[in-house]
Each structure stands twice: as C-alpha cells, then as structure tokens.
Design a protein around this nucleic acid. Structure first.
Length: 305
DNA sequence: TGCAGTGTTGCTTC
DNA sequence: CGAAGCAACACTGC
C-alpha cells in the first residue's frame, strides 16, 4: 500500500481524530504476532491508559507519540490500514452474539446490525487489532496479509530509523542539489534508486512509476546515464506527483483505505501503474510492463525515453 | 484448477 | 559493494 501520500493522509486524519485521546486498552486481537518487539501480554499492559500526544510520519512509518516519551510505531507494509470510528452506537463483542446494536468481530470481519457502509467494504474486513479510545472512539487495524509491524518504542528507536532513511522528498530542505548529490552516489536503475528508502524515503512502486512517466524517463535507465535536464525533470516530478497524491488522499487501487474506511482519489489519476495494455492518455500508445528487480514497472515507450 | 501477481522490507546468497 | 532471490501472508484474476 501505503506509500508516502497514503501514510501522510492517515497521519493527518489521526491528528484530527485521536490527538489528546487516551488509549483505554485493547478490545480485540486475533494476530498477536503483529506486535514485533514484545510479547502481546506486555503490549496490552503497556498500552493501557496511554495519552496520545501527537502523530507524525517518517518515511512510511506512523509515529504515535505517547506520554512518558514513548512512541507507538506502526508500519503498514503491503495491506495495513487504520480505521477510527465512533463507538457510541456500537459495542465491541467477539462473542459472536449480537444483542441490541453490537459490532462484533468474527474472524476479522465486522458483523452486526446496521454496519456503516464504509465497514461493509470488503477491504475493511481484515480486522486484527482493536483499541478502545476515550470519548467513545475505537481504532482498528485492518491488514489482509498481516505483514504490518507494531511496536511500543523509546526515542532511541527513532535514531536507529533515522540512520536507515534518506531525506523526506516533500521537506522544503530537500532541493535539486540534494537530489543531485543522492544520484551522484547511487548506481543502478533510476526506478530502483527512487524506491530505495536509504536514499529517498516514502516512494514505492506506484509513485515511482507515475513519477518516471511524469518526468518522461524510462524506469530502467541507469542513474549514471541521466542528463542534468532529466535529473531536474525527475526531481520536479517527485515533488509534483507526491504532492498530488497527498491532495487526492492516496491511491486505493487495491486495499488502501483512509481512517474512515473510504477510498483515496489518486487511482483515478494513474497514468501508467497497472494500466498494462491500455492506451497512454498522453500519446495514445500502449502502456507496457517489465520486471525491474522483483517488481513490475509500467511505462509508455513513446512518452518515456 | 492452478499459479502468477500484489502496495514492503530485510535477510541471505552469489 | 550491489543485485537478485526469497520469505512473511492471503486473496484476486487470468
């Protein structure tokens, strides 16, 4: 899923919805192995009663700052997303016996009466962890493939993250010359470099393809072969496409949903990603697909050189 | 029916 | 050092 624009959308929404709330505890969990740095029992104990102070994004990580200088760090990997919904009309029960207006979870699926439309969306039916928050809210984690990673960490975790991550492409301090410097010490295919979190953070398969189409550069072009003009075009496209991704609230080509369970808008704006065999919107040619590394790369052979 | 393909990342191997 | 393969997991679509 979730690349920079999706994670940013989630973080923005969480800031509005859960900042200042208290995590009262865990209501449901059918995949305790999602908690990566302690056993689930300890996680349950430690998360109880914690205040949410602020929420930030670093690369594709969601950082929920708690009291006592600790952080609930969540990585959504391929198919994870967070849902924040009102608990005022629904009570959670995993007994499987609806009574009144209960919101039950059976094998990760919401069941019960009068489910809100968003929760009927099959992509929101992979619930593996549910928190009860203060002020009548619940926060649920949905993740079809269960690749996601959840931890309670101290500040030193951030510095170890930091040492593994390249700059934020939407940071105003990230300018053309810092991009040139990164490319200067990189080898290999431009698409692989754009997706390498050590060099630039936040770009994944969807946005890498869209950025390179926007810049008019073929994905397998070697970094050393790029002209100054091409580098400038790629730099501008990185910022333009990621900004547009955030504005449109991310890409729901597949599993991604926002914290209300709703789709983003960028899938309607995709020019090449997963459009193999379809017409290029720009030149009418056919979008093609090749493998770069282990991943699919989509491109237009006419518009990209 | 079966298998290739799917938005991520880190580890292993060559 | 870098590139490639693979594993974690579960579902969709050809």
């Amino acid at each position: 899923m979730p690349e920079l624009p999706e994670v940013q959308t989630i973080v923005n929404d969480l800031s509005k919805k859960i900042k200042g709330k208290t995590i009262l505890g865990v209501l449901y969990c059918d995949a305790p192995s999602l908690i990566r740095n302690m056993i689930f029992k300890d996680f349950e104990k430690q998360i109880k009663g914690r205040l949410v102070k602020k929420i930030e994004r670093r690369a594709k990580n969601i950082l929920i700052y708690l009291d006592k200088d600790e952080i609930l760090a969540i990585h959504l990997k391929m198919t994870g997303h967070l849902l924040v919904i009102s608990n005022s009309k629904f009570l959670i029960s995993n007994s499987g016996v609806p009574s009144g207006r209960y919101l039950n979870i059976i094998k990760g699926k919401w069941v019960g009466e009068s489910l809100p439309t968003e929760l009927q969306d099959p992509k929101n039916q992979f619930i593996h962890l549910v928190f009860e928050l203060s002020d009548g809210l619940i926060m649920a984690y949905s993740d079809l493939r269960k690749f996601g990673e959840i931890r309670i960490v101290k500040r030193d975790y951030l510095s170890s993250l930091e040492s593994k991550l390249g700059p934020e492409p939407l940071d105003p301090k990230f300018d053309l010359s810092s991009f040139e410097a990164i490319l200067g010490r990189s080898k290999g295919k431009i698409k692989a470099v754009l997706m390498d979190q050590n060099r630039i953070s936040g770009i994944g398969n969807i946005y890498a393809d869209e950025i390179l189409f926007d810049a008019g550069v073929l994905p397998w072009k070697m970094v050393g072969e790029l002209s100054r003009d091409e580098i400038k075009k790629i730099f501008n496209s990185v910022r333009r496409i990621l900004k547009k991704g955030v504005e449109l609230r991310g890409t729901s080509d597949s599993d991604y949903r926002d914290t209300s369970g709703k789709e983003g808008g960028f899938q309607k704006a995709l020019k090449v990603y997963r459009r193999t065999g379809k017409k290029c919107h720009k030149c009418g040619g056919v979008i093609e697909r090749v493998k770069i590394g282990q991943r699919s790369a989509h491109y237009c052979g006419e518009c990209q050189k």
